[in-house]
Amino acid sequence: MIYDEPRFTPGGDRFIEMELGDELNFDLNFLVHALTARVREADFDGIIELLPNMASIVISYDPDRIGYDDVVRKIGGIFASLGSLEDVELPSPLYTFPVLYFDHVTRACWEDYCARIVEKEYDPDLMVRLNKLESRAQLARIHSGTEYWVAALGFYPGLASLIALDPRCRLTAPKYNPPRTWTPKGTLGYGGSVTCLYPARTPGGYQIIGHSPVPVVDLEQRLRAFRDRLALLKPGDRVRFVPVGREEYDHVEAQVESGEYEHQVAAYAKFSIRAYHAWLETLDMSIRF
């Protein structure tokens, strides 16, 4: 449920967790990001960082400048003044990523896991089976058939947790047990009801179903999209995956390597939850892609 009143609890001497509800729910996550945006705008002295997540926000503050009770009072005050969520519109750039589904890079990673850790079903086949799909082709069609919402950012620098905006494209996937010791940078993963692009070579637990040559993090800030930032995506941004063949994949990879690649983004786009709700009403939920 979404709580009537947010719940604040301390995390030591300089963190506070603010819980807004206790379920995975798009409206709840939108509320989290709408509130985060308003708190950032207010720019309270002593409130340092906000970590918005699925249903909660962790706030860090400087206790030499602001007390626990004042943080709660100020952020609680903003929550109370939010008004109807239906009227909120947030900037929401839409990024497009070319993806080679069922690719050679993640297949090699899966083979390595099977050889060194434990045998497991090929990840796309596991997802086809558990989601009662007809084929890998349908898995790719469904996965690339929706826009995704950046619900949270972090765990590892620049890792965006993406949830499908078209409810007909929601899939589920179990996590690796034990986890992988490595995952290729650019891997497209799926765990629970969340999909992600791995920003770097890291351990991981999501099922791996494709690969994109387009980076979401660039610590050297080589590509143009990273000129003023290290991580591409922010909570409230949107993402779409476009299936490409090996030739196009190789072309993009070469462009990324030479530093010429230009990320595809509709930077002007906004997201209105009223329009989203109205769109949901028009969907024929019996259709599967």
Partner: peptide
């Protein structure tokens, strides 16, 4: 709610305070 995960220590993803 089931989306919190199976084990009692599981919760819907949230931010982690340091410490």
């Amino acid at each position: 709610a089931p989306e919190n995960g199976e084990h009692p220590s599981n919760v819907i993803d949230h931010g982690y305070p340091i410490g």
